[in-house]
Amino acid sequence: MQFRGAFTALVTPFRNGAVDEERYRELVEWQIENGINGLVPCGTTGESATLSHEEHREVIRICVEQANKRVPVLAGAGSNNTKEAIDLTRFAKEAGADGALLITPYYNKPTQEGLYQHFKAIAEEVSLPFILYNVPGRTGTNMLPCTLARLKKDVPQVKGVKEATGNLAQVSDILEQCGPDFQVVSGDDFTVLPLLSLGGCGVISVVSNIIPDRMAGLCKAFAEGNLDEARRLHFDMQGLCRAMFIETNPIPVKTSLSMMGKISLELRLPMVPLAESSEKALQACLKSKGII
């Protein structure tokens, strides 16, 4: 499987309103040095919603170039506008990404048939492995297991799904209907271990921005049958996972990286800095886990 293990949903560092290329390259390098299995630029955690199209392309290009084929790059390329998603996916392929992460269209709330036709239309224009992204809490639409099974059967580019419902019954249904070769990755840091136990193959993680070695270690331990170590790492990371969502992602994780000295703390509206009480709680958590 191409997309197996721990992939980091990378933040996008900014400086003075622009993408901070130097810090971004350093972050990619640090992730690889610490054993991450793959990288995801331009996802939710990368503030893709407030990147211009030019910046979106720049961030993918930098990530692919810096990774230099050492780990797979799964580029965020989705949109609620099918034509725009085709254009972004085409660029991801031209830039050398190993696959595209395609979110279900948000706000316009398509039907299951609409979801099917959306991804089918992208596949007809771009030949690249796709991991679909199901996150109803942000999009207002839940892509059902039967729709995924239909897409897997009819659209060869659809290789798997980033499942972020937090619903393990739905994960089980996806694996039952799509088979063991369908790449189901967790979109919630809390559910990595139980998802792996059902037959999933990894995670696209927020917390691995700050602890790539631990999240990659959990996936590796599970793959090697070392369940005690996987369980230890699962519980070791839970406090940090909670802290990453003390307020809206990616505010806490960008704040954490700034506390670690890895990026400047710069967000784009409507994202705003943490409330003082949240910042103190986050700082205490990072200190307790030896992060700062």
Rank of each mutant, 00 (worst) to 15 (best):
P136S: 11
P212V: 04
K289E: 08
T12Q: 01
P212D: 08
G46E: 02
H56R: 05
G160H: 06
T165P: 02
L269M: 14
N34Q: 13
L74S: 04
N81C: 14
E113N: 12
R25Y: 09
G261P: 03
E276V: 04
R231W: 13
T44L: 14
N249I: 02
A9F: 09
V207F: 05
E55N: 08
M244R: 01
R70N: 04
T12I: 09
A97P: 10
T141M: 03
C146R: 14
L267H: 04
P110I: 08
L27V: 03
Q183N: 01
I32C: 12
E58T: 13
K120H: 09
I246L: 11
T141F: 05
P270M: 11
P212K: 03
G217I: 01
F245Q: 10
I131T: 03
T12E: 00
A164K: 03
V28R: 01
M1R: 11
K162H: 10
Q117M: 12
R214Q: 14
S205N: 07
N249K: 00
P13L: 06
L227G: 02
L175N: 02
N16L: 12
L193R: 02
D189H: 08
P110D: 09
M260F: 04
E33W: 04
T111P: 04
K159D: 02
P250C: 10
T147I: 10
L51M: 06
L267D: 05
A284I: 03
T165H: 02
Q238M: 15
S208G: 01
C42H: 09
Q177Y: 08
R231C: 11
V253L: 12
P250Y: 03
A75Y: 04
V203I: 12
V71A: 04
G290A: 03
R15W: 00
L51V: 06
G17T: 11
E33T: 02
L265Q: 07
L10N: 05
L274S: 06
D189M: 00
I32P: 08
D188C: 07
Q117V: 09
T111E: 08
A92F: 05
L286H: 01
V59N: 03
K152E: 02
R150E: 13
P136E: 07
F190Y: 13
I211G: 01
E124T: 00
C285P: 06
S127Q: 15
N80S: 13
Y116N: 08
Y24P: 00
F222G: 07
E47V: 10
E55K: 08
A6F: 01
Q157W: 02
Y133W: 06
R150G: 00
E224H: 08
G17S: 08
N80Y: 14
T147N: 10
D20S: 09
L257Q: 09
K120L: 14
A281Y: 01
T255M: 13
E21L: 11
F7T: 04
S258Q: 11
R268D: 11
L265W: 07
S264A: 15
I263W: 01
A223Y: 08
T12M: 07
E58F: 12
G99T: 09
E176D: 11
R57K: 15
S208Q: 07
C146M: 14
L132P: 05
E94K: 14
R268V: 10
N108E: 04
L195I: 12
